[in-house]
Every structure is written in structure tokens, then in C-alpha cells.
């Protein structure tokens, strides 16, 4: 089987590259869209208790719905292909980002903002220098969850004609070829782990204060 796999990689390396690229760009596009939607909405919802209930409730429900259901459900509405996939993936990615943003802002201890106000910082300065930095770890955790979710669902999206590495897996399923299944599975898994690891590294650089222990 290994020989078959290697042979496939060699003969199809161009196609594999394209598939990896597609997989990445639809995932990242959806993630970017989710962040652009989720973070501002989350911030606005966090600041207004009334709005928060209305906004977070539907997203909590959305989170529970199987991703495949959402992907497939969108077909009658948006058709098949890459763009409908990006839309579906965005819908899937917004809940963790939005909900984590809300929690991130709400979790800033009131005495912290009060201390900042007491020192003479304006509202904008407090937002910029205190609330946003303190909410960031939670927001980034939400983005990380969304990232994993999106890459996983992008694999499924191959089934609705979006391209991506899921195609290898589905081809393997259709042709009953174990080598393709293994190849596809490993590639998608590797992509997910790599992106996750990269994201963790970036988070570690941006926010070094998160995991410091007491020095004496």
C-alpha cells in the first residue's frame, strides 16, 4: 500500500498542492470573515446586557447543530462550489469567536477598569490599553477553536464541490482505495495540527504574560 501511496503523491503532486492551497484559502477566508464579524459584535454585545442575551442565544444553538447539516443545508440556497463553502464555514466559525469575545470582555475584572478610570484614563484609553489586551487570550482561544472547526469542515466541503484535501478522502471512499484514504486523512490531520501549532506559537509571542510563574 505504501508504494501505491508514494506513487500517487508523485503523479498527483500538482493536484495535491492545489488541493492543499484551496483547503487553506477557504479555511482562512472563512476564519477571517468570522473574526471580522464575531469580534466587533461580541464587543458590542458584551457592553450591553440586553443585547447580549439576544445575540448569544442563537449562536449557542448554532454551535450545537452538526456542521455537516449546515454545509448541506446551504446548498439549495447558495449552490455548490468554493464560495458557498466559505459562507457555510463562516457561519460555523462565528459562534466560538463571538461567544468567546463576549466572555473575554465580561471577564475583565471590574476593579481593573475602575483602577484605570481612577488613574485618569478616558474610556477609549481604557478600552485600548486595558480591556482589549485582557480580553485577547479568551478571544484568541475562540479563534483557535474556530480554526480547527473550519479546517475540519473544509474537508467535508470537498463533498459539495469546494475542492480541498477532502477530495482525496472522498475519492478514496468512492474507489475503495485504502492508500488514498490514508493519504488524505494524514494530510488533513497534518494541516490541522500544523495550523493549530502555528497559531499557538503566534499567541505565545503576542501574549507572553499569560503563563508566567512567580519568580522570587
Amino acid at each position: 500500500m505504501w508504494e501505491k501511496m508514494l506513487a500517487y503523491i508523485v503523479t498527483h503532486r500538482a493536484a495535491l498542492l492545489v488541493q492543499t492551497g484551496t483547503h487553506l484559502w477557504i479555511s482562512l477566508a472563512a476564519l477571517a470573515a468570522a473574526v471580522l464579524i464575531g469580534v466587533p459584535c461580541g464587543y458590542l454585545a458584551a457592553d450591553s446586557p440586553g443585547m447580549e442575551k439576544w445575540i448569544s442565544a442563537p449562536f449557542h444553538v448554532l454551535r450545537v447543530i452538526p456542521s455537516l447539516a449546515i454545509l448541506v443545508l446551504l446548498i439549495p440556497i447558495a449552490g455548490t462550489g468554493a464560495l458557498p463553502a466559505v459562507i457555510a464555514l463562516t457561519i460555523l466559525a462565528v459562534p466560538p469567536v463571538l461567544l468567546n469575545t463576549i466572555v473575554g470582555f465580561r471577564d475583565v475584572p471590574p476593579f481593573m477598569t475602575e483602577s484605570a478610570a481612577g488613574m485618569g484614563m478616558t474610556d477609549k484609553e481604557i478600552l485600548r490599553k486595558v480591556r482589549i489586551p485582557l480580553a485577547m487570550p479568551m478571544i484568541f482561544a475562540g479563534i483557535r477553536t474556530a480554526l480547527v472547526e473550519v479546517i475540519a469542515s473544509a474537508a467535508l466541503a470537498a463533498r459539495i464541490g469546494a475542492g480541498g484535501l477532502g477530495e482525496v478522502i472522498f475519492t478514496g471512499l468512492g474507489l475503495n482505495r485504502m492508500d488514498l484514504l490514508l493519504l488524505g486523512g494524514v494530510l488533513v490531520a497534518a494541516l490541522s495540527l500544523l495550523c493549530g501549532g502555528l497559531f499557538d506559537a503566534i499567541t505565545g509571542i503576542l501574549m507572553p504574560y499569560r503563563n508566567l510563574a512567580r519568580q522570587q
Binding site: F111, E114, S115, G118, G120, K129, L134, Y209
Partner: peptide, 18 residues
């Protein structure tokens, strides 16, 4: 401006952890 003319210290210190 008023608060910038005064110092304010609270029990939890309120140091910005980041």
C-alpha cells in the same frame, strides 16, 4: 483631568497583568 492630578491605589493593586 481631575483624576490625573490625584493618585489612586486600590486593595487589589489593579496592576495590569499584560
Amino acid at each position: 483631568q481631575l483624576r490625573r492630578k490625584m493618585g489612586y491605589v486600590i486593595q487589589q493593586a489593579g496592576l495590569f497583568p499584560h
